[in-house]
């Protein structure tokens, strides 16, 4: 529970941070809220040579509008997310999922960007970002690039972030009129990671479902979309029958793990039940 020795720097701009990463030696780690990184360092599962602490990089923190998009700074904390007026209006799915993350203390330090960069399949925010087709803005020594969510999550704890790159901000579409959302999380105790969770955003038009975005948490090494269910929902009347029928396909193409909390087949069953509940709630059933 005592980390190995490491060097520490605390830059105050993105430029400085990129420089610090470049100068940091063989094994540099970016420190955001530290709520995932510090535990693995304390268990000595990670022993970086240098930590570059981003908490003083003010330009990485906060939420702004950009036309139809919301732009969320990587260092925006979970607690910021819960009190942000723009997110309250256009980002309810993110807010709902963030409410289920850990406890007050962790939410006070943990960040939106850190949670996405960490890419834990049991984390609640990657599936939300995927469901929203978020865009990830990355900055590196060679400049900036934007990566769509489908390409960002590569594998278990692995993202498209290259060595030396920083996640700067995340762009998500505003969900306004007509959209209903629900983050349905299943865990054993209130402050635990998801065993399975479902992020649903559904747009209704004239009593029918016009668009459905469903992200699955912890149903594989990366967050997944319930594509078959999404397709089955488009154009149907809003009813418990149609939702139930579509949700029955939620586990298609998933490859969840076996662990102490759940075997894979049980997770697949949960995905169907939770998808039904999430979609039903999102459409107001």
């Amino acid at each position: 529970m005592i980390p190995a020795p490491f060097a520490y720097t605390r830059p105050s701009t993105i430029e400085e941070a990129l420089q610090a990463i470049a100068d940091g030696g063989e094994d540099v780690k970016v420190l955001a809220g530290g709520q995932s990184l510090i535990p693995v360092m304390r268990l000595r599962l990670a022993a970086p040579e240098t930590l570059v602490d981003l908490t003083r990089v003010a330009e990485l923190r906060g939420v702004r509008e950009d036309g139809d998009m919301l732009v969320i700074g990587a260092m925006t904390t979970h607690a910021d997310v819960l009190t942000d007026p723009l997110l309250a209006q256009y980002g309810q799915l993110i807010v709902q999922a963030t409410e289920t993350v850990a406890d007050r203390q962790v939410r006070r330090r943990g960040t939106f960007g850190g949670a996405l960069a960490h890419a834990d399949p049991a984390g609640d925010l990657p599936a939300v970002a995927l469901a929203l087709d978020a865009e990830f803005v990355l900055a590196g020594p060679g400049g900036r690039r934007t990566v769509p969510a489908t390409d960002f999550f590569v594998d278990y704890l692995t993202t498209a972030l290259d060595e030396g790159e920083l996640l700067v901000e995340i762009r998500v579409p505003k969900l306004g009129e007509g959209w209903g959302v629900r983050y349905e999380k299943f865990n054993r105790v209130a402050q635990a990671w998801s065993i399975v969770a479902v992020a649903a955003a559904v747009r209704r038009e004239d009593g029918r479902i016009a668009e459905a975005r469903i992200g699955l948490t912890n149903m594989g090494p990366t967050p997944l979309r319930a594509s078959a269910t999404e397709a089955a929902l488009v154009g149907v009347d809003v009813s418990m029958e149609t939702v139930t029928a579509a949700a029955a396909q939620a586990a298609e193409g998933t490859s969840p793990s076996n662990d102490l909390n759940a075997q894979a087949d049980y997770r697949q069953h949960l995905a169907q039940v939770l998808t039904r509940r999430a979609v039903a709630a999102a459409v107001g059933l």
Partner: peptide
């Protein structure tokens, strides 16, 4: 660890 050894909190 307390991630896997589940001790309930007041909220549970």
């Amino acid at each position: 660890s307390f991630v896997d050894y589940l001790v309930p909190a007041a909220s549970d």
